[in-house]
Design a protein around this nucleic acid. Structure first.
Lengths: 170, 170
DNA sequence: GATTTATGTCAGCGTTATTGACTAATCGCA
DNA sequence: TGCGATTAGTCAATAACGCTGACATAAATC
């Protein structure tokens, strides 16, 4: 009889997830995300740029040679929204767009030297914050942090989020 | 001589935080935050509401009786921005605003019964997602998740984020 | 009584996102 | 070869949401 009790899964065993605990987790995400993005926002505001530019620069840095379609799939915004931002970045010389070799309809996006400088300035403050948090929390906490975040992401985006796809494709 | 080596702090001992690791952490935050907020956004869009309404409803639910100033301090937006959102929520009967008893200049904000229903619908999908992630990742991962997030938040907002202040004040 | 504080409101602006419609170049296949 | 699908770029209109500045009102505090 008591045997039935010990067949509980690990999640049932130790996790009693109250409303309060979950709400607190949601708030932690809200505050952490806001503070993680506030400093980059300020730096980019000087150029007249916003968070949309930040996101584009970030993913072009991470996936040089990414196509428009690839960027659209990651950002999940419309073509029109992305186009305005990209137009500015290209016109201002931060991003270069070259036709694909195999498929010449595609536009392959890369940061220019100027773009690398801007990206670096922006991502430095962000990485400093995360590095500090990681260091203070310790390696085991970092592993847990990553584990939970991964599982919060829609399954179909997890591979993308973890860079399990090639660096130069979408 | 070797004694000097073992006095390294825990963070120096095991954490070799590469650029790549940190950038991946930043992306995890981006994807997780987006997916955590996308479903609530869709639900609220039916009412013609957006994320700003969601945030207001969330914090009024969590801190019933909060003042305008308290909400402004948490959300870090301007009075004018918040007012537009709050005006709609009050006019539509989701939020009630009553003068403070001690300080009658203050407006104490609470959800109405109708507001509770909306809040519940919205927060349910969000809590379901987080509960699933917590369960799959396990208790230790959850502890690490919380630990890192706390340390990402600006120090002056940590107490607020962790609800270390009274529920009915700011 | 004068000042400060808490709140509300008006007008205007900019960014970022949306939808819809359309063009142009290129690719792939029948 | 030619037609449909794909990739990208663009124009126009709309909306949410943030901002600044200016101003009004009521109430608390000194």
């Amino acid at each position: 009889m008591s045997g039935a009790m010990v067949t509980r899964s690990r999640s049932e065993e130790l996790l009693f997830l109250t409303d309060e605990q979950l709400r607190q987790g949601i708030e932690l995400m809200f505050f952490a995300y806001r503070d993680l993005t506030s400093e980059p926002d300020e730096i980019l505001a000087v150029q007249g740029y916003g968070r949309a530019h930040h996101r584009a620069i970030h993913f072009i840095k991470r996936r040089p040679g990414i196509t428009i379609a690839g960027l659209l799939a990651i950002l999940k915004v419309t073509k029109q929204s992305l186009n305005r931002v990209l137009r500015q970045l290209i016109d201002d010389g931060f991003v270069e767009s070259t036709p694909g070799q195999e498929d010449r309809r595609q536009r392959l996006l890369r940061l220019t030297a100027k773009g690398e400088v801007l990206e670096s300035a922006v991502s430095n403050v962000q990485r400093d914050r995360l590095r500090r948090a990681y260091s203070e929390a310790g390696p085991e906490a970092v592993a847990g942090f990553r584990k939970v975040l991964e599982r919060m992401i829609d399954p179909d985006m997890r591979a993308t989020a973890l860079n399990l796809v090639g660096d130069d494709i979408a």
